[in-house]
Amino acid sequence: MLIPHPLLGLRDAQEFVYMGDAALIGRPDGGDIATLHNYLYLRDNPAGEHRELWYHEQGDRSWLVVTRNTATHEILGAELARDVARAKGRSK
């Protein structure tokens, strides 16, 4: 697969490490056990469009949010995870 890196263009997926659901960005800082439990363990695993985290380990060390169709491998877009996080209101 080729990942459309927002800064570097198409890069081979071999250069990346995959982490899974990008919902992990929404960490409930300071949450209680039940909240953290739901955050960590209860995730969707769709056959179809999925937003997921990829780390460009053999590249520029950016974490990306890649929107991928898990059934066809079609990639619909990729963003810097820090931009996604900020858009969700995350800061420090």
Binding site: M19, L24, I25, L80, A85, R86, R90, S91, K92
Partner: peptide, 15 residues
């Protein structure tokens, strides 16, 4: 190192 980058970029991007 990967984990630290994750925390820095995905969780607390303005640190």
């Amino acid at each position: 190192f990967r984990h630290l980058e994750y925390c820095r970029q995905c969780l607390w991007p303005d640190m």
